[in-house]
Design a protein around this nucleic acid. Structure first.
Lengths: 213, 213
DNA sequence: TTGGAATCGAGAAAAGATTCTCGATAAGAG
DNA sequence: CTCTTATCGAGAATCTTTTCTCGATTCCAA
């Protein structure tokens, strides 16, 4: 059933989700793909295909029940079943991530934080005590934590990933600017600003060239 | 010449770039696509296609001169010609971005910061004074700044984008979790954690289902 | 009750990206 | 000097994603 979902479609669902919530707040009850497409400036067919993925069936001429659609998206993405996560690296980025309470309503709950720096170990950050990095594998193993968040410097990232894998992690969300190697079967999600910087910079350059030509 | 470059390829170039720099630090002088592919666990053909984009020509049986390849990538991406940028939103994320000195060597230089909060206006953050948000359009217009970085809450993001567009910005790098509408011709790069969270969560769910089935 | 308009759903077509295949070329071994 | 091997470069084939098209369904208005 859930076979072959385009990555791009998955990444568009949160966009719809937010628009839908805003509409709900405005008291709207029903919505069509055409409506969504208009509001977001996207192609209506694409919106329809993306929403079809979730499995919801709509009514011709009307569209979908708004709150029903929101629940289908939450369920499809698993956002109504938060997965536990551990964080490695309690620097400024890591601390910020620990503070994002909204992650919980978007499929993820950070339950523990780890760092290698003795200065940080023992500190409380947003209600969680920073533990020694070496405790991470056992923690993951015993709690069956599914997600590992890496917010360390690039140099440490691979060894931290190895610790997570050793504990049997299912997925890694990597904020360090480093290409990490993990065994097949472990899901890897990179959040690398330099990827974006490359794309952005190149597009600006070509835009300028186009203007000259 | 620079026509129809896949987004995915653009985002892979920084990965190669880092590996190449690490090799250079180790005193390696020549590198083949096969080498890179091996190190990174990628497909050699894909690496070759990506590198071909930059326009460099290699030697059969040898590959590329390492430092030459690095320079071709920098030049292709425009990383050797930093573009000026303004930042809107001097919160914790914005301050962190102001601190990333390395952006300069990756095509971007944040030259000014703006915020709407009187408490923040006048403060120095990493050497730049926070200015009133309302000064942003004129600043952009007069300095011909090309990039606008949005690090505000989601609710403020659209109006900030409008200010940037009013000043004639060329590209927006948006960190706010909001879908922004800009006129055609303005480049939009979204850095939305919830996009990743959707992808990550869905993949974890399907992995688990697969394990059960 | 009937005709018209808007939308869904699904399959087809088009566009785009990745992977495969093969000839050409250069380095190194015998 | 010749043969083998590794690699580049380019075009073909495959696979994926997006866009188009059209029949079926439902609501609304006359």
């Amino acid at each position: 059933m859930k076979t072959a979902i385009p990555e791009a479609s998955l990444r568009r669902l949160p966009v719809y989700y937010r628009s839908l919530q805003a509409m709900m707040a405005n008291g709207v009850a029903q919505v069509s793909c055409a409506d969504l497409a208009r509001v977001l400036g996207l192609d209506p067919t694409q919106v329809r295909k993306d929403i079809e993925m979730t499995g919801i069936v709509g009514k011709p001429r009307v569209g979908y029940e708004l709150n029903e659609l929101v629940r289908w998206i939450e369920n499809f993405l698993g956002w109504n079943r938060p997965k536990e996560a551990v964080l490695a690296g309690a620097g400024s980025l890591g601390s910020a991530l620990l503070g994002y309470e909204k992650f919980r309503r978007h499929g993820m709950l950070i339950v523990a934080a780890f760092d290698i720096d003795p200065q940080k170990i023992g500190q409380q950050i947003h209600g969680r005590e920073v533990q020694p990095l070496m405790f991470l594998p056992d923690f993951v193993r015993q709690s069956h934590t599914q997600v590992g968040v890496i917010a360390t410097p690039a140099a440490a990232a691979q060894s931290v990933a190895d610790l997570m894998v050793a504990g049997g992690i299912g997925a890694i969300w990597n904020f360090a600017p480093a290409h990490l190697r993990v065994p097949p079967g472990v899901i890897m999600q990179n959040e690398d600003l330099y990827h974006s910087l490359a794309s952005l910079s190149f597009k600006l350059e070509s835009r300028r060239e186009m203007a000259i030509a």
